[in-house]
Amino acid sequence: MEYLCLRNLRLRRHKNGSSFTLCVPELRVCAGQTLAVVGQSGCGKSTLTDILALILQPDSADEFLMRGPEGDINLLNIPKRLQAEIRGRHIGYVLQSGGLFPFLSVLDNIMLPARLLGHNQKAVKDKALSLAVDMGIADQVYKKPQFLSGGQRQRVAIARALIHDPKLVLADEPTAAVDSVSAEEICDVLKRTVQNHNAALVIVSHDRALMRRHADYEVTYSLERRDGIVSTLQPPVRLDSAGDAG
């Protein structure tokens, strides 16, 4: 099932006197799929992430929808409060070094998104503990994040991204702050857990090799100079790992 549909989306940004235009002819993110967004610096990975995270609004789009069993949600030109609402309810985030709150325990960090949505405390706690077991950090739940390793923190971040059952999980360079062994483990856990939750996963990374081993699809950009820089998202390419994962 398609969770996110983008068609003929366009966003132009101006910075230091030059302009950057991101064009997305078509992008569909489906449940259970892992989409890797790779490319060199300045190609528009962050801009695409901001659009997907409902932080930036495109200038125009023929289609910018979030689909769901309760119907489609048009994400184009919606008010900021609704953007925040959709962000909190339907999207999970895994940040570079976890983005955990140092004053909360691991368990409280995991539970935070669900608590902000007002979910049942007991159910949230049970689910957080279950996720902690899945992530292999069950014995760390009452510790503060600063007492965990980089890999463990990322596992906490993954658990936090999934606690409220989002449709889409956005992972922005989730392995940037860990060693290669941990990176493999994190990608593996991330993909597996997201698939188990039947969510769609979009990983933004500069490590193309790592992504080729773990993602189902890969999208890249083609850059051209035409009235500033124009970056066009290429159609997704199915990767060999898709069959293994899927």
């Binding site: 932080i55 900021k80 925040a84 962000r87 309810r89 985030y93 940040l95 998104p113 902000l116």
Partner: peptide
Amino acid sequence: ILRLLGVH
């Protein structure tokens, strides 16, 4: 992060 998690 709180803003990202949907807090207005």
